[in-house]
Computed example of a mutant assay.
Amino acid sequence: MAEKPRPVQVLYCAVCTLPAEYCEFGPDFEKCKPWVIQNAPHLYPDLVKADKEAEKTGEKLQGMQISGDQADSTAPAGSVSKQEEVKRLPGGKIKKKEKPEVVVEKVVRNKRKCVTIVKGLDMFGIKLSDASKKLGKKFASGASVVKGPTEKEQIDVQGDILYDIVEFITETWPNVPENAIYFIEDGRKVPAA
């Protein structure tokens, strides 16, 4: 006779209340690290190894910050350098802290109609609803604020205004430098300047 299936036992983090294997993707992994090292060392062997090395050298494991000369291939996957702040994404990808930039992209639909997409104006403190009104008025077209595929708001402007928009943005909002504006051409980010 087959054995009865047993319920899966899940170990939840006492700090962030996520399952322990998802702590690194939680809101504050830095606070979870000591708990994870003590209660679930099998899930993060690199973290345990780094903790033991830190104890040998007499240092306390604080935030897993290491200097640039110590960063090498043996550094744990969750470590960050003091020079740049990175964020760990699901799948082990590392996302660097975003610098403010405006990305302009032209999307062709139905082989002749174009939509110009403007992303990142909000990073410069510009209210997107006001910006869409100004863009629509300047280029005599429809412009609206929509949520993009990454759930960030962007401005969609009807028509091909890809190269005219750079001059308009830098004149209208002087706090947006021209070297912070990029085009997306053939899937690559190209500086507008």
Rank of each mutant, 00 (worst) to 15 (best):
I66K: 13
S67Y: 08
S67K: 13
G68N: 02
D69N: 03
Q70F: 04
A71P: 03
T74V: 00
T74W: 00
P76G: 04
P76L: 01
A77I: 11
S79T: 07
K82Q: 11
K82S: 11
Q83K: 13
E84T: 11
E85Y: 15
E85Q: 15
V86D: 03
R88V: 10
P90W: 14
P90V: 10
G91H: 07
G91S: 05
G92Q: 12
K93Q: 06
I94C: 01
I94Y: 08
I94Q: 04
K95H: 11
K95I: 02
K96L: 08
K96I: 12
K96V: 09
E98D: 15
E98A: 12
E98V: 09
E98F: 07
E98Q: 14
K99Y: 13
E101W: 02
E101F: 04
V103N: 01
V103W: 12
V104F: 15
V104Y: 06
E105G: 04
E105D: 13
E105F: 10
K106T: 13
K106D: 00
V107K: 14
V108D: 11
V108L: 14
R109L: 15
R109Q: 13
N110D: 14
N110E: 13
K111I: 09
K111D: 15
K111Q: 08
C114I: 13
I117H: 09
V118M: 09
V118F: 06
K119A: 10
D122K: 13
D122V: 06
M123D: 11
F124T: 01
F124P: 02
I126C: 13
I126P: 02
S129H: 11
D130H: 12
A131Q: 03
S132A: 14
K133L: 08
K133V: 06
L135V: 08
G136P: 00
K137L: 10
K138F: 09
K138L: 05
K138N: 11
F139I: 06
A140W: 07
S141E: 01
G142V: 11
G142I: 05
A143W: 01
S144A: 09
V145R: 02
V145P: 00
K147Y: 08
G148L: 04
G148W: 02
P149R: 12
T150N: 10
T150V: 06
E151Y: 09
E153M: 12
E153R: 07
Q154N: 05
Q154S: 04
I155W: 04
I155M: 07
I155H: 00
D156R: 08
Q158D: 10
Q158L: 14
L162E: 04
Y163E: 13
Y163I: 07
D164F: 02
I165Q: 01
E167W: 13
F168N: 12
I169A: 01
I169C: 03
T170H: 05
T172C: 10
W173K: 00
P174H: 11
